[in-house]
Design a binder for these strands. Structure first.
Length: 427
RNA sequence: GGAGAGGUGGCAGAGUGGUCGAUCGCGUCGGUCUUGAAAACCGAAGAUGGGAAACCAUCCGUGGGUUCGAAUCCCACCCUCUCCGCCA
């Protein structure tokens, strides 16, 4: 959520930055400003009347103590109450409208963001390693089926399309990767946390998945009162960042660094048949997530650090990848600046996104009322960041496809052998 | 699922219709004293919104209601604890 004060002070500058994203969210700014003015006018007037009422009530109290007649004052108070009620209704309705719009407006892209219209204009920041030379590379579906690592027919029987069943060595490879990722990231100084996968609506609003992307989410039905609806977390970002929702942490505890392994649930509506071969795009997938809460001065530096922590995974596994930066037109709604890490998948003949590392500024902190107390005792919004460290299925794909051998076997990179217990997969 | 108790400031815990945003204690911070520390004593300190500021309004789990006036009375909901039942 954007700071209303910044919008109030610099509406055109805010609109200009929002325009860089494409789309027309910037048009909401005008309405937000109109609501803001109307709201404040109504509130000021209401408060003056409340102050008056308070005074009268006190006088009545004192007069009654003396046994005096207070009927005149009481009827005056009743008249004031009628006015207050009308003003209150107006202030409330306006405030609600303002809040709804504010929650829909995306974050401002940071000045450091490259400008561009869509994903074709995302600059490559760096490339690591080189694509292995493989004659007639097979894709992971062929490889996983040949070695009986993953079964899609089973998955369809149980859950339908968009799911996978890992079996035997296939399941163990997944588990080995999860443990390898968690160990590597805790070595980087992240506290391992194990969090619920079902989260409240407030959490989804706090990190920014709602209200904009409700159709992408799985959730339970709300009860008769319209309450107590839970959502399946689409990423551990939601439960982990929200561990600190509505709290005030001492500045000395920053930075907070946490990592978590969780499954992630996404409807991926309308994406059937697109980029969804094998396990590349699924309704449920595993991910190890990195989350940081940092002092505002540290935001940019923390993004570089966190991205390096994600990249370290691919380097340790010896997987060729590249890091790109999202341009303003491709940037996620909540992010101020994002790096995507893309791993090479020879069987697909393209790079796959295995990690997206984002810096949100105070956008999420303001939504979830996450604050820190600074040296002067003031409550301020810290910056939040997160990144995949990394997503499992595409890492799995890259591993099978980059390490496939001419004899049909798959070599397990040395860093993973202690976790997997074998140095290759062969049938 | 059944029965009971309770949700008040960082913690603990008073307050049952009228200067209560809220007693007291612990903890925290500043000061006095001390070579330094402890102790003792003095003092400071909640959050949100509006305002340049003085200051004003709101907030005692959440949402409604009664009243001139609600932490205090009424209704609904949420949560926590204890006991019983069930259960991985």
């Amino acid at each position: 959520m954007l700071d209303i004060r910044i919008i109030r002070e610099n509406p055109t500058a805010v609109q200009d930055r929002l325009k860089l994203r494409g789309g027309n969210h910037w048009k909401l700014i005008e309405d937000v400003l109109a609501c803001d003015e109307k709201r404040r006018a109504a509130e000021t007037e209401k408060q003056a009347l409340q102050s008056q009422r308070k005074l009268i009530a006190k006088q009545i109290g004192m007069a009654k103590g003396k046994g005096e007649d207070t009927s005149a004052a009481e009827s005056e108070a009743r008249m004031i109450n009628a006015k207050i009620e009308a003003l209150d209704a107006e202030a409330e309705a306006t405030s609600l409208r303002q809040q709804e719009h504010l929650m829909m407006i995306p974050n401002l892209p940071h000045e450091a963001c490259p400008q561009g219209e869509d994903e074709t204009q995302n600059p490559v920041v760096r490339t690591w390693g080189a694509a292995p030379e493989i004659v007639d590379p097979q894709d992971h579906v062929v490889l996983a089926t040949r070695h009986q690592l993953i079964d899609w027919d089973d998955a369809v029987r149980v859950s339908g399309s968009g799911f996978a069943v890992y079996r035997g060595r296939g399941a163990k490879l997944e588990r080995a990767l999860i443990n390898f990722l968690l160990d590597t990231q805790t070595d980087h100084g992240y506290e391992e946390v194990n969090v619920p996968h079902l989260v409240k609506r407030e959490c989804m609003e706090g990190t920014g998945q709602l209200p904009k992307f409700e159709e992408d989410m799985y959730g339970t039905e709300p009860d008769e009162s319209g309450q107590n609806q839970l959502f399946l977390a689409p990423t551990a970002e939601v439960p982990v960042t929200n561990l600190y929702r509505d709290t005030i942490v001492p500045e000395s505890r920053l930075p907070l660094k946490m990592c978590a392994y969780t499954p992630c649930f996404r409807r991926e509506a309308g994406s059937a048949g697109r980029d969804n071969k094998g396990i590349i795009r699924m309704h449920q997938f595993d991910k190890v997530e990195l989350v940081q809460v940092v002092h505002p001065d540290q935001g940019l530096a923390a993004l570089e650090e966190l991205t390096a922590h994600a990249e370290a995974i691919l380097q340790k596994l010896g997987l060729h990848y590249r890091t790109i930066e999202l341009c303003t037109g491709d940037l996620g709604a909540n992010s101020a600046k994002t790096y995507d890490i893309e791993v090479w998948a020879p069987g697909q003949g393209k790079y796959l996104e295995v990690s997206s590392c984002s810096w949100f500024g105070d956008f999420q902190a303001r939504r979830m009322k996450l604050r820190y107390k600074d040296g002067e005792g003031k409550n301020r919004f810290p910056h939040t960041l997160n990144g995949s460290g990394t997503a499992l299925p595409r890492l799995y794909v890259a591993l099978l496809e980059q390490y496939q051998q001419e004899d049909g076997s798959i070599t397990i990179p040395p860093a993973l052998v202690p976790y997997f217990g074998d140095s290759s997969i062969r049938s």
